[in-house]
């Protein structure tokens, strides 16, 4: 009887402990959000979003920074997502277990823990200097893409592993090749999990400052990358990816280190913009995941 009571007590206490653990994260997050919003909300305006940086805090804006962030994020996704997913599929579905494959796997897991500034040094050496891409949007996006690759690969593998093996066997039984099985059965089923990994990866990339500062992303940029669609022939231009850029975290970092108090308010407002972009990005991914989940019918 006593034993039963004790177990009940344990059960209850774990529930409470779990709740407290959850709340700690939430309380810290909301404290941060409240602090940033009270500081920066008043500064947030159309003028702030549509102006270039300035020496006067009240005239300074964040246009070049947030457009730069959107550019870099889209390009990072376009580079990292296909490579990461393909690598994940290969490692999970095709690769034979040998000592070599073990080394690859351990290294990918280790790469996920390498400090981001190391990726910046790699980007500086490889993209900026050797490939002579200069300090362009492309250099920045390629550096961030390498930074988030391990996350995408690992989460793709997790997602593929979660697809029941019976699905694959059923597909093979009907005469499908390996590629047909992966393409039409396994990958669609794994897609929600793959997308969750991609969300995490992009959310990490958007806040990175150190690797971009290392490759030499600039602080003061008062123009935007060349627009990808133009009114003149040939209507599409890739010039933008070779243009100089700045991103939100760098602009925020710079404002926080300035002496004038007005720049602190600007920085807080910049953080709100960064949070909003992260939120929109995650929203798109959640919506995509939802669509894929609905499509799965076995």
């Amino acid at each position: 009887m006593n034993r039963k009571l004790y177990n009940k007590f344990l059960d209850k206490s774990f529930t409470i402990l779990g709740l407290v653990a959850t709340l700690i994260g939430l309380v810290v997050l909301s404290a941060l959000l409240i602090d940033v919003f009270t500081d920066g909300m008043g500064r947030l305006s159309w003028q702030f979003l549509m102006s270039y940086p300035s020496r006067r805090p009240e005239e300074a804006g964040i246009l070049s920074a947030w457009v730069g962030t959107v550019w870099v994020m889209i390009l990072t996704g376009l580079i990292a997502f296909p490579i990461g997913v393909m690598a994940g599929i290969y490692l999970e579905e095709y690769e034979k277990k040998t000592w070599f494959s073990n080394i690859i796997e351990i290294n990918i897991a280790n790469l996920a823990g390498v400090p981001s500034i190391i990726y910046g040094l790699l980007g500086l050496g490889l993209f900026v200097r050797v490939l002579a891409l200069e300090r362009s949007v492309l250099s920045g996006a390629a550096t961030l893409a390498i930074l988030v690759l391990p996350i995408i690969i690992l989460s793709t593998r997790e997602a593929l592993r979660a697809v029941p093996f019976s699905i694959r066997e059923a597909s093979y039984a009907l005469g499908a090749t390996r590629w047909q099985t992966i393409r039409s059965q396994v990958l669609p089923a794994a897609m929600p999990g793959v997308l969750t990994g991609a969300i995490l990866a992009m959310s990490r990339a958007i806040g990175e400052t150190a690797p971009l500062i290392t490759i030499g992303a600039l602080t003061y940029v008062a123009f935007l990358p060349t627009s990808p669609i133009s009114s003149e022939f040939p209507y599409i231009s890739f010039q933008g990816i070779f243009d100089a850029f700045t991103v939100l975290p760098i602009q925020i970092f710079n404002w926080v280190s300035r002496p004038q108090k007005g720049f602190f308010t600007d920085a807080a407002a910049g953080i709100i913009v960064l949070l909003m972009i992260t939120f929109i990005m995650n929203g798109i991914a959640v919506w995509l995941r939802y669509r894929y989940q609905k499509k799965i019918r076995w």
Binding site: P53, R55, W71, F223, T226, S227, I229, A244, S257
Partner: peptide, 30 residues
């Protein structure tokens, strides 16, 4: 992409002056 295009200012192939260096001199150069 369309959204970016809308807010992208009309750009010319303007020459770029590249400056880098000290954070102390930065506010003046900016």
């Amino acid at each position: 992409m369309a959204f970016i295009v809308c807010i992208s200012a009309k750009t010319y192939a303007a020459p770029v002056i590249k400056i880098d260096g000290s954070s102390t001199v930065y506010p003046i150069t900016e």
